[in-house]
Design a protein around this nucleic acid. Structure first.
Length: 483
DNA sequence: TTTTGAGTTGTTCGA
DNA sequence: GTCGAACAACTCAAA
């Protein structure tokens, strides 16, 4: 006796492996109807940005292909989620719907409404965890509250029982006798009308297979040297898993168990071979989700209320120079141009570029968060929010206010040969290493030989870092509590 | 309730 | 060039 069909509503879980909503649908028996619904207005003011949308289009195509290889399809629709699901239930006779949970405040709210309405309709609703090692409510302090400091959060995670082993992708996915209509991915308008995605396309392979390849690359070439390599933007020292994790093309459980098995344990019981350092980063992703879930206003407003009074400047010209990578500080500009051309920025450089916007230019962190949101292929509300608030000093466990990154010193320390700068700021590529992070210090003859014209081919610094630092410290001093 | 120890990623200055 | 201290006070989390 086969049961009636189950709809699997795909969202940020665009994979077949270790996908609990899908697995449970298969275990339930009967046909499975995989669905994706494009409803960006539900997520305003944080509807996905342009780079995210590009990635999404590719990832949906890859998912559809994988489903077709299993004898199934991906039904794509646009518009109101509840109306669409109800129509699909009506058309297919499905009696159940499964999805994997998301944790962004607006989405939690929307999903709650959808779930209640469908249950009232008599539909069986099942929701699952695919996106996190530990969901926001699973980790709590001894008195039951959310954590605001990373280290105790991390320790609490390590005390948790290990999560279940990731499930394999199904062999096949039983199709319904008749498929509901589907829109084409191309009709969703996710891809640019003007061709700007060439650099992004050249840098990434969206989809579950691309994610698996990135994980293999992490094990083969990255983890071993991760503790130091992750801070070197000139080399491939990071996992580059972030967009794959954001779109759920791979799950954190699979990453965790694979890295752990690879790294092994040293004599003192600690994870060896860079494993600890990498998995810590994975827990930072968990912490970001924990924070946004428990402090849902923080995507727009500071966690520390005194920062509501911070004297941010308005300066459209400075903001535009930062966005375009024309601040005159090579490390900042290289980062901003890497972001623009590849849809991604190395984490070390994100901190440098973000610190520059917030502390050197005294522009509001929300402006930076907005720009990153639109340009990053890994734009993730939880991670983006936590990162910007950390840099600005207004978030959980944030950098102390006097911690102002020096873009020249950071460049010299983490990109000593200037490879990273040369790659992304080609007009400086002929400068010797000792001037590549501060070209204005180079003698005229050196500049001439390298064909660099300060204020011509490459901008003069738009602010003096030393003076900017003093101004930032003064501004932060003014919002201190006891003054 | 009170106490205690601690807190991702830095910079600058002076010895 | 290298090293340690100062930068400031606050809040968190657990005992």
């Amino acid at each position: 006796m086969t049961r009636s069909a189950t709809i699997v509503w795909f969202r940020l879980d665009l994979r077949l492996e270790d996908n609990p909503a899908l697995t449970a649908a298969l275990e339930r028996g009967g046909a499975v109807i995989p669905v994706f619904i494009w409803a960006p207005s539900d997520e305003e003011p944080w509807a996905p940005g342009a780079a995210s949308n590009w990635w999404l289009a590719q990832s949906l195509r890859r998912l559809a292909e994988s489903l077709e290889a299993k004898g199934s399809r991906l039904v794509v629709r646009r518009g109101g989620v509840l109306e669409t699901l109800r129509a699909l239930i009506r058309d297919t006779g499905a009696s159940a719907i499964h999805w994997n949970r998301r944790y962004e405040p607006r989405v939690v709210e929307r999903d709650g409404i959808v779930e209640q309405a469908l249950r009232r309709d008599g539909v069986e609703v099942g929701t699952f965890n695919a996106a996190l090692l530990f969901e926001p409510r699973e980790i709590a302090t001894k008195v039951g509250g959310p954590f605001k400091v990373f280290t105790p959060f991390y320790n609490a995670c390590l005390r948790m029982p290990p999560s279940a082993k990731p499930r394999r992708a199904p062999r096949d996915v039983p199709a319904p006798s008749r498929w509901p209509r589907s829109d084409a991915v191309a009709s969703l308008g996710l891809e640019p009308k003007v061709e700007w995605a060439a650099g992004i396309r050249a840098s990434w392979t969206p989809g579950e297979k691309g994610a698996a390849r990135a994980l293999k690359h992490l094990l083969d070439d990255v983890v071993e040297g991760y503790p130091a390599g992750r801070d070197r933007p000139g080399i491939e020292g990071t996992s580059r898993l972030s967009p794959h994790l954001h779109f759920g093309e791979i799950g954190p459980r699979a990453v965790w168990s694979t890295v752990k098995a690879y790294a092994g344990v040293d004599a003192r019981g600690a994870l060896a071979r860079g494993g600890e350092a990498f998995l810590r980063q994975l827990v930072w992703r968990e912490f970001a989700h924990h924070l946004l879930f428990h402090f849902p206003h923080t995507s727009d407003r500071p966690l520390r209320p005194e920062f509501e009074r911070f004297p941010w400047r308005r300066d459209a010209k400075a903001l535009s120079a930062w966005q375009k990578g024309r601040t005159g500080y090579p490390m900042v500009d290289a980062g901003m141009r890497q972001l623009w051309t590849t849809g991604w920025m190395h984490n070390r450089v994100r901190m440098i570029a973000a610190s520059f916007l917030v502390k050197d230019l005294l522009l509001p962190w929300q402006e930076g968060a907005r720009w990153f949101w639109d340009t990053l292929v890994d734009a993730d509300l939880a991670n983006n929010t936590m990162g910007w608030q950390w840099t600005a000093g207004c978030g959980a466990d944030a950098a102390p206010y006097f911690r102002v990154f020096n873009p020249v010193a950071q460049g010299e320390r983490y990109d000593p040969e200037g490879e990273y700068v040369r790659r992304h700021v080609p007009e400086l590529s002929a400068l010797p290493a000792r001037f590549v992070h501060a070209p204005w210090r180079a003698p005229a003859g050196t500049l001439y030989a390298a064909a660099v014209g300060i204020g011509e081919s490459y901008p003069r610094p738009i602010v003096d870092h030393g003076a900017a630092r003093t101004a930032a410290l003064a501004a932060y001093g003014r919002i201190k509590k006891n003054r």
